[in-house]
Every structure is written in C-alpha cells, then in structure tokens.
Design a binder for these strands. Structure first.
Ligand SMILES: NC(=O)c1ccc[n+]([C@@H]2O[C@H](COP(=O)([O-])OP(=O)(O)OC[C@H]3O[C@@H](n4cnc5c(N)ncnc54)[C@H](O)[C@@H]3O)[C@@H](O)[C@H]2O)c1
Ligand SMILES: NC(=O)c1ccc[n+]([C@@H]2O[C@H](COP(=O)([O-])OP(=O)(O)OC[C@H]3O[C@@H](n4cnc5c(N)ncnc54)[C@H](O)[C@@H]3O)[C@@H](O)[C@H]2O)c1
Lengths: 207, 207
DNA sequence: TTGAATCTGTGATTTAATTAACAATATTTT
DNA sequence: AAAATATTGTTAATTAAATCACAGATTCAA
C-alpha cells in the first residue's frame, strides 16, 4: 500500500493531537473535531484514515488509543531509526537539543563536524564526531537518517559522503538543492524560500 | 495574475541559482540547465517562467540579469518588508543570526520574548523587546511578518496577539497548528512531521 | 418503533500541478 | 540557402490531491 505524501504528513500531525487528547482524558474523537484541530476538513480526515485501513465504531468517533496505535504501525519502525546531525552550528545545536528532549522512535545518537573545537564535545547528551569518521560511525551505530546543517558551500560534498556512507534519508536545511540517488529519500526545507513565499502572499493577497 | 504556490517557491529557488551563476560570470542559462540545478525538469522551469510572463531571446537561453529582475518584480516589495522573530530561544536565535547576515528585501528588525533576562539584549544587531510592547513596536516599525519560535504551549496565545497587532504573514516553527483569519498568510514548518515523513519513506521505500 | 438527526466510508467529480507533445523560431552546418 | 539541430512557448493529456455527494449505520426523540 502506498500512501500519498501529504497523507503521511497529516498522519504525523494527527497523532500528536490525538496523544494530546488522550492526555486530557478523552477516549474518542470525531472526524470533524480532528479536522478542526488542524486546518482541515472532516472528509480529508476520514479519507486519510481510510487510507490506513482503520475503521471506527460507527457514530462514536474514532477510538483515540486504537487510532494512535494504527498510525504508529504505519509511521514507526519497530525498533526506531537512528539519526545523525551533520554540522553542529547554531541550527544543528538547536535541532539536536530540541529532538533529544522528545521520547520518540527517532533517536539522534550522533553529531558530526569538522571544527576541532566541537569534536568530542557532547551536546544534549549526544557526542560530536569528526566528519572523517562518518562511514565508520554510521555503520557501527546503524544510522539511517541524517539532518544536514552544514554551511551551504560544503553541502554538496558532505551529501556525497552521506550517500557513500549509505544513509537512506536526508533532511536538508541548507539552502542549496541537493542531488541524491533515487533510493535515498530527500526532504528539503528552504527557510529563505519559505519566508519569501510568505512575503509574496503578504504583498499580493489572493482574495 | 495569481501564481501557483509551488511556482512561487521555485521562483525563489531559481533566483538564488541565477545570482550564483551571475557571480560566476555567466550571462545566460537554458531551461534544462536551471532544471538540473534544482531537481526539476526543463518543462517545469519554462512553465514557471511562462507564468511570470518573461520571454527569452530564442535559442540563447534566458538572460540571467533580466530574469533575476523579473523574479524580483514578482517576489519583492518595493521597499522590502519588516520581520519580527517571536521567542528568542535556541531556534529563534539561530534564525535571527542567519537572516541578519543576508542582504535581502526581508529585514528582521525586532525580536520579542517574555524572559526578562533576554529583553533589551541585542542579538546580531537586533533588539529584543518585551512581548507586552508587541502592538506598539509592530505599528511603529511597520512590521508585517512574524517568525514564531515560542514554546508550543504559548503558540496559540501569542498568535492571537500577533493577529491583533495586524501582522499579515506568519511563519510557524512551533509544532502546533495555528488558526489565523483568512487575510493572514500562514506557512507552517513542522520539523517533527518532516522527520517522521523521512523515516516513513526510509522504512517503506516507494519503488 | 418510526422518524429525524448524526456521523462514517467511499465512489464520483473537481481542482491543481505536472508532464508530454509539438509547432514556431533561431542557429549552425553543409 | 536548404537541411539539420537546438531551444522555447504553449496546448493538450495525465496524474495527484482535495472535495462533493450520498448511502449506510447508529443513536436519539417522540
Ligand atoms: N541558522 C538558521 O536558522 C538557518 C536558516 C536557514 C538555513 N540555514 C542553513 O543551515 C546551515 C547551518 O546554518 P547555521 O546557522 O547553523 O551555520 P553555522 O555556521 O552556525 O554552523 C555550521 C556548522 O557546520 C560545521 N561544518 C562546516 N563544514 C562542515 C563539514 N564539511 N562537515 C561537517 N560540519 C561542517 C561548522 O563547523 C559549524 O559548526 C547553513 O547551510 C545555512 O544556510 C540555517
Ligand atoms: N529548536 C528546534 O530546532 C525546534 C525544532 C522544531 C520545533 N521547534 C519549536 O520551536 C519553538 C522554539 O523552540 P526552541 O528550541 O527555540 O525553544 P526555547 O525554549 O529555546 O525558546 C523558546 C523561547 O521563547 C520564549 N518565550 C516563552 N514564552 C513566550 C511568549 N509567550 N512570548 C514570547 N516569547 C516567549 C522563551 O523565553 C524562550 O526564549 C518551540 O515551539 C519548538 O516546539 C524548535
């Protein structure tokens, strides 16, 4: 079964709302309630849930616990996945600190840099390795995902090394577009573009 | 004329590549060259350029300088737009430092926080104001865009204040979905979702 | 216990975005 | 200067995503 990309994203978002609701003591939720928590419609929610093959007790809404579990079955790997942050500057540190706080199936277990003043330091409990040890550490620690926060001018080169080290997923925060082979999943977040888009729509409102 | 959202994003990306090419002394670029710099096709590039009504000298490729200017006419506001960062913690500081380095039409000119140890401090040349002065400063400095990097549990409340202060564009980095009136443009970047999506596609490759 | 109301699941339709296909035009080659 | 080649601009076709529309299923109200 192959899920639409947007559906995958929304499932991740739904899950957090659902967990929140559980904490508040709720046990069930209607599609229109979940829709309202996101900027979304009830049909969209039902369609997404249909994709993952979950069906609710009619008229009672979705069972929060069950739905969270089904989403987990879809999104999570049994034993979690290991993640490395490459380039532990301002952004890399913020991201590392943020994620290490969360208990989740995604574990940031190593960071890499070339700056000798950073190497061997521990940030939020995660050790910083020299980039030269990338291959070795990635293999030893079974890291499959990298978060790229190196300066723009080394992005391409470091990416080649990551591919070489057999990384399978890459989240790119640098503002240079990267090329990876088709078996590596790449997600890029270009902050400049995002801001420029906001600016465009502020300047030229659409309605 | 109303541009597809994805086209707006790509134009922003193209522009940076074009400027890069200009610096390297090039004067023209073919659609397939530009496509190759992004992960993109020549048709897509031409289609995007068609949307903005620019047409090249046939067979010579696009004139870099002209194309950059046309994209600027579309994306930029004449006098630039003023931006504030709300919540000057790890991420807020990284973003502020990053953007202040760039000369661009988007000027981060104020930051806001509630932590008294941060208020009145200057980060990368930008002063931090108490959130209580939001309305006043936003009006005085004609700030139209906000970057939201406050803790999740204050996101909704702060957003209401931003809307009240008549902010017209909002880039949300918190991982809670926000509700804003239709005349406020909202872009959300949910880092958890992005990473979970990468993890999903690593776990379940699509081909 | 019938009728109205509420909510889900899904086929059909619409809309948005991408890709294919190709005519038009300029350049190069012979 | 005719033929071959390269590149653009655009119409048409395709694909992906979102929305509509409505048939069931269940509950509630009288
Ligand atoms: N800071 C932001 O908010 C922000 C916003 C948008 C984009 N970015 C992008 O994210 C990247 C990092 O931004 P930053 O502000 O953290 O920069 P930074 O300069 O603070 O950090 C970069 C880090 O990467 C390290 N580094 C350099 N070369 C390396 C290499 N070859 N291998 C591994 N590490 C290497 C440096 O030592 C440094 O620690 C940049 O590409 C930037 O364009 C950052
Ligand atoms: N750090 C990351 O990489 C990262 C990643 C994903 C999401 N986020 C989100 O971004 C936000 C900020 O993350 P962070 O790591 O910078 O957190 P942080 O705790 O370092 O910073 C939060 C800042 O907001 C300030 N603040 C608190 N309440 C405020 C209010 N009402 N008004 C203005 N300022 C207020 C705090 O004083 C602090 O300076 C969080 O919502 C987090 O979920 C951060």
């Amino acid at each position: 079964m192959t899920l639409p990309e947007r559906t995958v994203e929304r499932l991740s978002e739904y899950r957090r709302s659902l967990l929140q609701c559980l904490e508040e003591g709720k046990t069930h939720i209607f599609s229109h309630e979940l829709a309202e928590l996101h900027h979304n419609t009830a049909v969209q929610v039902r369609r997404d849930i249909m994709f993952i093959g979950y069906t609710s007790m009619q008229r009672k809404g979705y069972d929060l616990r069950e739905l969270v579990d089904v989403i987990g079955d879809i999104l999570d790997s049994e034993r979690g996945l290991n993640v490395a942050v490459i380039g532990i500057g301002n952004l890399g540190r913020a991201v590392t600190t943020y994620f290490v706080g969360k208990r989740s199936k995604l574990n940031i277990i190593a960071t890499f840099d070339v700056d000798t003043t950073k190497i061997d330091r521990v940030i939020s409990g995660v050790k910083c390795y020299p980039l030269s040890r990338l291959n070795e550490v990635v293999k030893a620690q079974q890291i499959s995902i990298a978060i790229l926060t190196v300066p723009a001018d080394s992005a391409a080169e470091v990416t080649a090394q990551l591919v070489e080290a057999d990384i399978k997923g890459l989240m790119n925060f640098t503002t240079v577009p990267l090329n990876v082979p088709p078996d590596v999943y790449l997600d890029e977040f270009d902050m400049i573009t995002s801001l420029e888009k906001v600016a465009y729509f502020v300047k030229s409102p659409q309605n």
